[in-house]
Design a protein around this nucleic acid. Structure first.
Lengths: 193, 193
DNA sequence: GCAAAACTAGGACAATTGCCCTAGTGACTC
DNA sequence: GAGTCACTAGGGCAATTGTCCTAGTTTTGC
């Protein structure tokens, strides 16, 4: 009957709630209510709150991997693929304005909580980092590729934070354009054409 | 006897705890324990948790104003003053790596909580924004001054977030240098010398 | 068609939450 | 020296927290 297993439903609901409200703020009751399960029933699926967090992070890792693989196939040049990364800020504008970047805000919250899963959360960043590094490498940036990847990640995170604080569409457009200009300026001058 | 009033002690302790643990995670008991006061006694000073938050934000606004005024006096050129802003990332490196930027993380957390004081938290950003805008204006950037101020704020926020995720001193150094280069590149080519 | 496994509801648990009240202390003013 | 004030401790409030148990009901595999 259930197309998706109850466990996956719980993880999905927890993922959403952790993003919208934060990990610590979200209670068992919140998640149970979201999937219409009694609170006691919860224990059957997850022993502790940290178990849920682990599963949510694992799900985010899997989803991110899938998204990056998709971008890898769709974009027909490394620069175009990096462009797709930059444009998530536009695509998810509404959510980011209200709840920040899901990757950055989770990493920061877990750091504040001094939570053991902090390293796992940072691994989501590393997924993007490695993927971006490969694109920059294919653009011929060689040794600089990883630095550029980290730089772009930082730029995106900063834009996301300021989007949350100000919700200014002009700012977002300017910064997006600046990132694309930066990206274009990186490529060695084309010899053809 | 008390050099600082108990109320100010509470605000100071709450400020620190809100930064290190987050607002929602910090309880009355935490703050009361930090200033060695009984939990019940707390009510005499602050009626609600939001009252404390308001006072903490007010204190942060005042402290930020004082810091900016200090930078204004000490730096002998607008570029030097902006340089001082950039270098807080180095100065506060340890704290930022563990708890993020106090301004950005509070704004983001309040956004997630859908908290009424979110605008007040953003006002701390505006303090920096206005101050930076004035510096860029004095550098002759005119109409671009506010855009540059926001851009620099975003860059700093992004660096702070990645510092928290990775704690990589090389990354921090590279990004700091890049910001200084960016700043130097902004100035119209000097005619004297 | 039966036994094991998956799932469910309902409630209990000790602890903690934000909030509130009362009764008291000491210092200050007139 | 009476009265006001800032401050304090201790406790109580209902609600919620994460965790856990028991006792049922489905679903599944053989």
């Amino acid at each position: 009957m259930t197309r998706v297993s109850k466990r996956d439903q719980i993880v999905e609901a927890a993922d959403d709630l952790f993003y919208r409200q934060g990990f610590d703020t979200t209670s068992f009751a919140d998640i149970a209510g979201a999937v219409r399960i009694s609170r006691g029933n919860f224990y059957h699926h997850f022993k502790t709150k940290n178990d849920i967090l682990d599963s949510v992070i694992a799900a985010r890792l899997a989803n991110t991997r899938a998204m990056l693989a998709d971008w890898q196939v769709r974009g027909d040049s490394p620069a175009a693929r990096i462009g797709a990364f930059i444009d998530i800020l536009l695509t998810n504008r509404d959510k980011i304005e209200r709840h920040g970047c899901p990757v950055g805000t989770l990493a920061t919250e877990l750091a504040k909580l001094n939570h053991g899963a902090q390293a796992d959360a940072a691994a989501i960043f590393t997924l993007f980092r490695t993927w971006l590094r490969r694109q920059f490498d294919q653009m011929g940036q060689g040794a600089r590729a990883d630095d550029l990847a980290l730089h772009l990640l930082a730029r995106s995170q900063g834009i996301a934070t300021m989007m949350t604080a100000y919700r200014d569409p002009d700012f977002l457009r300017r910064e997006r354009d600046a990132l694309h200009d930066w990206l274009d300026g990186l490529a060695p001058p084309p010899t053809h054409r």
